[in-house]
Design a protein around this nucleic acid. Structure first.
Lengths: 253, 253
DNA sequence: CGTTGTGAACGTCTTCACAGCA
DNA sequence: TGCTGTGAAGACGTTCACAACG
């Protein structure tokens, strides 16, 4: 727990739209690539193209962060990288635990993008005693029994759930009770959490079903459309979802 | 530019909002669970709770599909399962190829949710000749050289890219050229595709960065809030994203 | 009755278009 | 001149609240 005193809302930093927050990582990635190629400045048009959005949206997004550009010139790459990193909280280190070291959990543990920016896999946890001690991605797997201790010892506030659906809620409850306040859920279940805890869900099967919907429609419209080509769509699964404010706990007997 | 103004005043049948489409798989999952427990009917309130949304949203969503409920009673579970499945195009079989059989690709191949509803892993493809012939999840890996033939022989229209970022665009181009019109991209890159091709992106690192943003903010507000608890947020990574309509192709030398 | 289906109000996100500044 | 930053307009999504109806 950091001593979060003296954090004045600053009148401006209050309230960056969720949709904007979801795009900041995209901009950051594009900027990092530019930075590695030692590009000093970039225009909203160029950066937008690299990030796959349009320039008006990008400028509006940046306007929520402040005025970091120079008219007639563009944005200073290094400076923007820093500002966005700071805004996203990536200038500090986030220890993360992954619970459920099956195929997916192991793949996540091995995923390079984890370590890249501020995130550090602090521990791998699995319920199978046979896994205990076995190293995955160079990190020894620990048993679920020690979950609470692991969370507390490492000051973990972000947990990744990669367990089977049946175990997810239980794991979630234990993570939250131990102090985790952000959860990335790969299990195909709706998790219910207390106020103050963020959950983001990644669900392969949902993504495929959405694609199937559009695919089916293409087949149907093939003959109907007089225009020729349909417009291409590039949906980023990571935009905001239904913010719910009012998710009732489900408890069917 | 794109197709002309196809902004129909929402006649009645065509035009289900993207946000609704993204939730249909959620409803379907909840309904399937009810169906397996032989529950005959369900109210919007109950189903909404099980799906993690509020009931008004659910009713509005269903209203786009038609009037499938009975006032004073609720919805017939089996009937709704069928209607939603049909709407999503899950009554037919979708052969899918996975390209890039590393840790993640293998995890995806082993993922049970794939086969469950209408999706069938038709082939696994990898660029490593050493992988060729090796079975993963019971399916022999084939070499990238045969990509076009595999797509055509199996009538594949949905492709999953799980390659390293550097290979993703190239693989994407080949998939599209061979006839794939829907792509699920796990590589951390912006893919550019021609009109008529849908891309959905799943990006672990982006999800974590979004969580970090909120996590950081929580730490800052710890002392400021006079309300007590912060509202819980459950974001579903799979809602619609920035529909772009106008994504410029990026071509940095 | 109880619950659906939906018009209308409201809020959020995107796009436009241009003023303002380097 | 060229590009950013932003008010205003518009599209989209959610929530409200209640009439319609089994």
């Amino acid at each position: 727990m950091a001593t979060g005193r003296t954090h004045r809302p600053a009148t401006r930093s209050r309230g960056i739209p969720e949709a904007t927050v979801a795009r900041l990582p995209l901009y950051l990635r594009a900027l990092t690539a530019l930075s590695e190629r030692s590009v000093p400045t970039v225009s909203s048009e160029e950066l937008a193209a690299a990030a796959g959005v349009n320039s008006a949206k990008l400028r509006k997004d940046f306007s929520y962060l402040g005025s970091y550009g120079t008219r007639g010139v563009g944005y200073d790459v290094e400076y923007l990288v820093y500002q966005i990193s700071r805004e996203l909280g990536l200038t500090q280190d986030w220890p993360v635990v992954i619970v459920g070291i099956g195929n997916l959990g192991a793949a996540l543990a091995n995923y390079g993008g984890f370590a890249s920016r501020g995130f550090r896999v602090a521990a791998l946890i699995d319920a199978d005693p046979a896994m205990a001690g076995k190293p995955v991605a160079g990190i020894p797997v620990q048993h679920t029994d020690d979950l609470e201790k692991i969370i507390k010892d490492n000051g973990v506030s972000i947990g990744v759930i990669a367990t089977p659906a049946g175990a997810a809620q239980q794991v979630c409850d234990r993570l939250v009770a131990a102090g985790v306040t952000s959860i990335l859920n790969f299990a195909p279940t709706v998790l219910s959490v207390p106020d103050g805890v963020d959950v983001r869900k990644v669900d392969l099967s949902i993504e495929l079903q959405i694609l199937a919907f559009h695919e089916q429609r293409k087949a149907g419209e093939e003959t109907a459309a007089g225009d020729g080509a349909l417009p291409a769509t590039t949906r980023d699964a990571s935009t905001d979802q239904g913010p719910d404010g009012d998710v009732p706990a489900v408890m069917p007997a």
